[in-house]
């Protein structure tokens, strides 16, 4: 996934490891069970960062429409997503002030 691209697919990492990057800076490393691509899916703006596979990685792509259906059926998963977003925001704030 490249920064600035259009796209609304959410990716779930089934196996492997990815790096979320902006320029030369690594913003996060995400592994099995984690997700990425949610920012552009929610705000419908271009991708906010690059995502690069660090090892052999398998991802499941979920379209915006499927994601909406999943949320309607299982609204509780939002609570888990919120915890993960709060964790990332906390890390980003720390990186910003280092």
């Amino acid at each position: 996934m490249s920064k600035g691209e259009e796209g609304s697919t959410l990716y779930l990492i089934l196996d492997g490891l990815v790096a979320v990057r902006s320029g030369n800076r690594v913003l996060a490393n995400l592994g099995k069970g984690n997700f990425f691509g949610e920012i552009a899916l929610f705000d419908k703006q271009p991708r906010s960062a690059d995502v690069v596979a660090v090892s052999h990685t398998t991802c499941l792509g979920i379209t915006a429409a499927s994601f909406e259906r999943i949320l309607q059926k299982e609204p509780k998963i939002v609570l888990g997503i919120n915890r993960e977003l709060a964790r990332r925001l906390r890390n980003a704030n720390v990186a910003l002030t280092e």
Binding site: R25, I39, D43, S48, N93, L96
Partner: peptide, 12 residues
């Protein structure tokens, strides 16, 4: 949260 994450990503 996603909106704020985009802002901090941009700032970074």
């Amino acid at each position: 949260l996603a909106r704020r994450l985009r802002q901090t990503t941009n700032a970074l």
